[in-house]
Design a binder for these strands. Structure first.
Length: 153
DNA sequence: GTTGAGCGTT
């Protein structure tokens, strides 16, 4: 819908060419073949541009997420506490505190997924900070499932 | 109910 004049002219030109080609291999009357060819070619080009716009629109820098490693957590801290703590420094998308698979007891560390821009600030603000009589360790997580810190290369 | 360096899970 947002195509400018140049792309519109290009689409029409290609549509006409496609219509001519379509007419050559069709046994129906030339006028109908031409119209059908133009419609099909125009539709194809239209959807190609639509998908292009969709892909580009999906790239939203304000929503890129970064996974943070949080260590030296007090055992009594739950996911809610950690989420509230990090939420003071940015948008927190998810919190996972690792626990023992058998006993279910917390292991004192976990992961926080939050806004990439806020993540750097959260590291500076929360790393080596006192929390529950413990000194927090906050860093960027290792095995990143989300390859979003690629802007640091 | 305990412990204390670490990088996980559908």
């Amino acid at each position: 819908m947002k195509s400018n004049n140049q792309t519109t002219i290009t689409v029409i030109a290609i549509a006409i060419i496609g219509a001519l080609i379509f007419s050559m291999f069709s046994s129906t009357p030339p006028a109908i073949s031409f119209a059908l060819g133009a419609m099909l070619t125009g539709l194809a080009l239209h959807f190609m541009q639509e998908s292009k716009h969709t892909i580009l629109d999906d790239i939203d820098p304000s929503q890129s997420s970064t996974t943070l490693y949080v260590g030296n957590l007090p055992y009594r801290a739950n996911e809610s506490d950690v989420k509230n703590l990090f939420a003071e420094h940015g948008d927190v998308f998810a919190v996972r505190l690792m626990k023992d698979k058998r006993t279910g007891k917390r292991r004192g560390f976990g992961f926080v997924v939050m806004n990439s821009q806020d993540a750097e600030h959260a590291i500076d603000q929360l790393n080596n900070q006192e929390y529950g009589q413990r000194t927090l360790k906050v860093r960027e997580a290792n095995e990143p499932k989300n390859a979003d810190s690629l802007d640091l290369e």
